[in-house]
Design a binder for these strands. Structure first.
Length: 305
DNA sequence: TATCCAAGGTAAGTT
DNA sequence: AACTTACCTTGGATA
């Protein structure tokens, strides 16, 4: 086992591990104490979080375990690989200059309050395929249950990895998931999302389309590209662009942001996804509008106003 | 105890 | 192109 620490002083704009992995951007991390997406923020303040990176995403081409927790002055980590610092930096966007990004957001009182409430929260950069599947599962679902679905998919279909005396599971590969039947997936409580997940996995497995291919396109073309996957509309496409593919200008229009638009920025409501998305993206400063979206989403969802 | 409702939406069918 | 409706599941609210 490898281990080490990344001093928080090295991170421009600070860091908030719990907000970053429990704000509903990613469903691919687990908390060692079992609790996740529960309500009491303090519970996870210094908790260990862990994830298993798919083999296709690691330098070793094997699944690798990453475990990390935040202390007063550092991000401590334990891992199956010495590449952990680079991988953590990638997954948790530790190299984003948070202060500079927040400075680009126009002065909007409610957005300011959201930034102040969870200062240090970073966007994540999830592996593309797991991100795509997890947000297909997110339709009409609560965050705790979306997370549970991903854990069941990993346990049922992903590669087992031994680490620190325990057996963990990587997220399934496209091939592994494509081999599941709709009935199998319904048994994991995916509901009507089951055929979406199976068919999308099949599209990726056969190479008909891949989420990575969207990364090379201009933003709105990339969003259109992703909607060819079954179960992926504009909103889920925006989530994949923002939380995996580096399109930090993407603003997923979920129910919380729709409410925020109605309550705070009604002039941005244009009657359709594309135009409303453009309007709120401009209002949030363009280039890093997705950062504002994610802070506002988490702030409103946790009771802010 | 039974019923209703909403949860980070999307696909398919109808005007 | 805009508008409706159905869709799995489940914990919590309401009756």
């Amino acid at each position: 086992m490898y281990e080490g620490r990344i001093p928080l002083a090295d991170l421009a704009g600070g860091f908030d591990m719990q907000a970053t992995v429990e704000s509903g951007q990613t469903y691919l991390w687990d908390r060692a104490d079992g609790g996740m997406f529960e309500d009491e923020r303090a519970w996870g303040a210094d908790a260990w979080y862990e994830t298993v990176l798919p083999a296709s995403f690691t330098p070793s081409n094997d699944p690798e375990v990453l475990r990390a927790r935040q202390t007063d002055d550092a991000l401590e980590w334990e891992s199956s690989t010495g590449d952990a610092p680079a991988l953590l930096t990638h997954l948790l966007r530790l190299d984003d200059d948070l202060d500079a990004i927040i400075d680009t957001t126009p002065d909007l009182p409610m957005v300011e309050r959201a930034y102040d409430a969870y200062r240090g929260m970073r966007l994540v950069r999830d592996p593309p395929f797991p991100c795509l599947i997890s947000f297909i599962c997110s339709a009409q679902m609560r965050v705790e249950r979306i997370h549970g679905m991903q854990r069941r998919l990993a346990r049922e279909y992903g590669d087992a990895v031994e680490f620190d005396g325990r057996t963990l599971h990587a997220f399934p590969t496209p091939d592994q998931l494509a081999a599941a039947t709709e009935a199998d997936l319904r048994d994991l409580s995916l509901g009507y999302r089951a055929p979406y997940v199976q068919r999308t996995a099949e599209m990726v497995a056969t190479g008909e389309a891949t989420p990575e291919a969207a990364a090379d396109l201009p933003y709105e073309e990339a969003r259109d590209y992703l909607t060819q996957f079954v179960g992926v509309g504009d909103k889920v496409a925006d989530c994949v662009l923002l939380f995996s593919l580096d399109f930090l200008e993407a603003v997923p229009l979920d129910t919380w942001i729709q409410t925020a638009i109605a309550d705070y920025y009604p002039e941005c409501e244009k009657g359709n996804y594309r135009d409303t998305s453009r309007a709120i993206r401009e209002r949030f400063g363009g280039q890093y509008a997705g950062y504002a979206q994610t802070y506002v989403f988490f702030y409103l969802r946790t009771g802010g106003e």
